[in-house]
Simulated assay, not measured.
Amino acid sequence: MTPDRLEALRRLAETRKAADLAALEKLLRAERDCATEIEAIRATRAAELAEPFGASPPGALEARLRWADQRTAELSHRRAEIGERIRAARAAAAVSLGKDKALGELRDRAAREAARARLARAERETPPGEGRRGEFE
């Protein structure tokens, strides 16, 4: 395959790599957002539990604590789902990175081979006595 065709394939692989890395970053950001919200809810819950008895209207504290527990459970479940998707996205990104690197190396090797072939052809086509390498006069 020619260096130009390999470069075209490498550009396609690079585009795929960028998309895979962007998808992975989006998932990682969503996972961090879930973790941040869980921590905020837990901190608020701890602060409310530390308030003196009777500081909140009757039943309000229990309702807020129930909501906090439900929301934390929802976020934990979502975080676990995102974790599975992150593992898949990391695998896809690793494949994309490998393809991009391999195609770049193949392109470089093909370019070196093409340059060697051009040099060898030029030497074969050079008339005797006009600077051919390896000949003694």
Rank of each mutant, 00 (worst) to 15 (best):
A88G: 01
E81I: 06
E125D: 15
M1Y: 12
E14V: 05
E130G: 00
S76Q: 13
R32G: 01
R112G: 00
E48K: 08
E130H: 13
A111S: 10
K17A: 05
V95M: 04
A23E: 15
A60R: 13
A120E: 14
R71F: 03
G129M: 12
D69A: 12
P58T: 07
R32W: 02
E105C: 01
R107D: 02
R112L: 10
A30D: 12
I38H: 01
G134V: 13
P57G: 03
R124D: 06
F136E: 11
E84Q: 13
S56A: 05
E62Q: 12
R5T: 13
S56D: 11
L12D: 13
T126V: 03
R66S: 06
E84K: 13
T72Y: 03
R132S: 03
I41L: 12
R78F: 02
L65R: 09
S76L: 06
A47T: 06
A35M: 02
R133G: 03
A35D: 03
R121S: 09
T72E: 14
A13C: 04
G54Q: 04
L119W: 13
L21P: 06
R85A: 11
K26V: 11
A91Q: 14
T126N: 10
D20F: 04
S56V: 04
R64S: 05
A13S: 12
I82L: 10
I38W: 02
R32E: 09
R45K: 08
Q70T: 08
A88K: 13
L24I: 08
A93Y: 14
A111D: 11
E31I: 00
F53N: 00
C34V: 01
E105H: 12
A46L: 06
A18L: 12
L27R: 11
R78A: 10
D20N: 11
E51Y: 09
M1H: 09
C34S: 03
E7M: 05
L24W: 05
K17Q: 15
A13N: 08
A114Y: 10
A80C: 01
P52T: 03
T72H: 06
T2S: 15
L6A: 02
P57L: 09
R132Q: 13
R42Q: 12
R87P: 01
R85M: 11
A120F: 07
R10K: 14
A91T: 07
L119I: 11
E74W: 03
D20M: 10
E105T: 14
R133I: 13
A18Q: 15
G59L: 05
A68L: 05
R124F: 07
L9R: 15
D69Q: 11
E25A: 15
L6C: 03
S76R: 10
E125Q: 15
P57Y: 08
K99S: 06
L21G: 00
